[in-house]
């Protein structure tokens, strides 16, 4: 019984950290920090990193890493803007952008499984390749695009839409998070992802189709980067090939703060979402207090290291 309690304590630790961080800022930051409006802002600001980190959760549980996420997001914003400018409907442009992300992800997966190179190297390469593609497609400029419903996905709700509680993009994040959590728990693919990250050789011995599963993992990571790119475009209203530089690091940090292990085999959707929220709360709190960007960066950096150290200590105990 004792063990079950311990398990739950472990699972709830990121939640405890989120509440703690929020409580600290609630005390030291101006009252506007705890306003509903700011809460909504925090949730909206978490959406881009949150969606991308769902894919990264799969990748990291599977013992891999995907460094190309930020570049895919930039490429997707460019593709959407380019399609809109070419006269396609918003829905087609959105689907086209997300599809571009999926293709990028499958390219990563194909290279990793065919060339048998570590994902770090492959995605470090495609990080540059996809960024270059985005810049080439956009002729190294921002692409302006006509306004459409896409831009409402992540904007503050109009008064007549308050029945939605939060904007569509946040609902998409919620929906995707639930789907990924269910997939991890209730499908073969989920089980295989855990087993590959835990012990690839043993998984192979058990007859797990390693290559297929990895291809799918990176494909999904690309797909989710595609959705994140759609959200990024929604916020920017233009296609910007230089956007989201270093986003992959925020995404990885969200997974790690949420209990994901870079050694593979561990991680959860709930943890990842909480990890992403923790980072946004810190940012929002620091901004409200008028602290500079560099303070936020130092605080976030410390949180990442502390999260991993705590995680390590937890494991030593068992």
């Amino acid at each position: 019984m004792n063990k079950h309690i311990k398990d739950w304590v472990n699972k709830l630790m990121p939640l405890g950290a989120l509440i703690l961080v929020y409580a600290i800022f609630a005390v030291i930051a101006p009252p506007s920090f705890v306003s509903l409006k700011n809460l909504e802002l925090i949730v909206r600001q978490t959406t881009i990193v949150g969606i991308a980190s769902l894919g990264m959760t799969l990748v990291i549980i599977g013992g891999g890493i995907d460094l190309s996420v930020g570049s895919i997001v930039a490429l997707v914003t460019v593709v959407i803007a380019w399609l809109l400018m070419a006269g396609s409907s918003p829905i087609l442009a959105a689907l086209g952008g997300v599809f571009a992300g999926l293709v990028c992800g499958f390219i990563n997966g194909a290279l990793i499984t065919r060339l048998k190179l570590v994902p770090f190297i492959i995605t470090l390469g495609t990080l540059l390749v996809y960024r270059g593609c985005a810049k080439g497609l956009a002729h190294e400029q921002k692409i302006d695009a006509p306004l459409s419903w896409i831009n409402e996905l992540l904007a503050a709700l109009k008064p007549e839409h308050t029945w939605m509680i939060v904007p569509g993009g946040v609902w998409l994040l919620t929906l995707l998070a639930i789907i990924v959590a269910l997939v991890l728990r209730y499908t073969r693919f989920g089980l295989y992802t855990f087993s590959i990250g835990s012990n690839e050789q043993a998984a192979r011995l058990c007859g797990v189709p390693i290559e297929k599963v990895k291809l799918l993992i990176y494909g999904i990571s690309g797909l989710f980067a595609g959705f994140a790119g759609l959200m990024q475009f929604s916020r920017l209203t233009v296609g910007d090939p230089t956007v989201a530089q270093g986003l992959e690091l925020d995404v990885i940090a969200a997974v790690v703060i949420g209990g994901g292990s870079l050694a593979g085999g561990e991680g959860s959707v709930l943890g990842t979402i909480l990890g992403a929220l923790i980072m946004t709360v810190i940012r929002s709190g620091c901004t409200q207090m008028g602290l500079s960007n560099w303070v936020q960066e130092i605080v976030t950096g410390i949180i990442i290291v502390v999260a991993v150290v705590l995680d390590r200590m937890r494991h030593k105990q068992t």
């Binding site: 073969r188 089980l191 087993s195 835990s198 043993a202 998984a203 007859g207 085999g265 561990e266």
Partner: peptide, 20 residues
Amino acid sequence: LSLPATLTVQDNIFLGMELC
């Protein structure tokens, strides 16, 4: 021994031949 260590006992017993 070569079991995926972060999986549960149940998942280990059925890995590779899950009941679906």
